[in-house]
């Protein structure tokens, strides 16, 4: 019994000397680190599961037929669950967009840069105000287009011109042009 007492006493001091006095303690550290590695490798898929799932990614492209859109008309459609504006600019709107001095703009971009080569009457933009994400007016029949003839966001009064560039109000950037391409003369594929 006496030696038992000394035995437990020793172990108590051994327990306190974990600072690497005993080389065998390496295995304790190794086991604990392995548990850590395991926890991290489980955490990765558990975090990744919040990323878009395969079906969401698969629906990330939209095909649009332009044939029925008359000059001056805009259609509102959906791309990645957000509004997409496809606008057939009239020659007057093209001219008004082109005569703006790029130096005056908050986010300088020309109409050419915002449309495809040879198709500058087709303005394809997201219908999401770059300020706080409201849907700007101006796409629907009879909606107010703002003082620059493009789009007008009713939330905080941002006005966009006929190239959907920000001209007035709090929005910091032009309406975003999504990646798209012409699959034929009268059809585009967005995304």
């Amino acid at each position: 019994m006496e030696s038992m007492a000394s035995l437990t006493e020793d172990s108590a001091t051994a327990g306190e000397e974990q600072g690497g006095v005993r080389r065998r303690d390496f295995i304790n550290v190794a086991a604990a680190s392995f548990a850590g590695v395991g926890a991290v490798s489980i955490a990765l898929p558990l975090i990744n599961q919040m990323n878009p799932s395969a079906d969401v990614l698969a629906e990330a492209s939209t095909e649009i037929d332009l044939a029925a859109i008359q000059p001056g008309q805009t259609i509102k459609t959906i791309f990645r669950k957000q509004p997409l504006f496809v606008r057939h600019l009239t020659p007057a709107e093209v001219a008004s967009a082109e005569k703006v001095d790029l130096g005056e703009l908050r986010d300088p971009q020309s109409l050419e840069q915002r449309t495809k080569a040879g198709k500058k009457q087709w303005l394809v933009t997201m219908g999401v105000c770059t300020h706080l994400g409201c849907v700007p007016l101006g796409a629907g029949e009879g909606e107010v287009k703002g003082e620059f003839g493009g789009y007008f966001c009713p939330c905080h009064g941002s006005s966009y011109d006929t190239a959907a560039r920000i001209r007035k109000g709090p929005a910091p950037k032009n309406l975003e042009v999504p990646p798209y391409e012409f699959t034929s003369d009268t059809a585009i594929k967005v995304g």
């Binding site: 898929p45 599961q49 799932s53």
Partner: peptide, 13 residues
């Protein structure tokens, strides 16, 4: 089935 097929690591969870 959506979880099993399309969600990232959904089958695992």
């Amino acid at each position: 089935e959506h979880i099993m097929r399309d969600v990232n690591a959904g089958w695992f969870i």
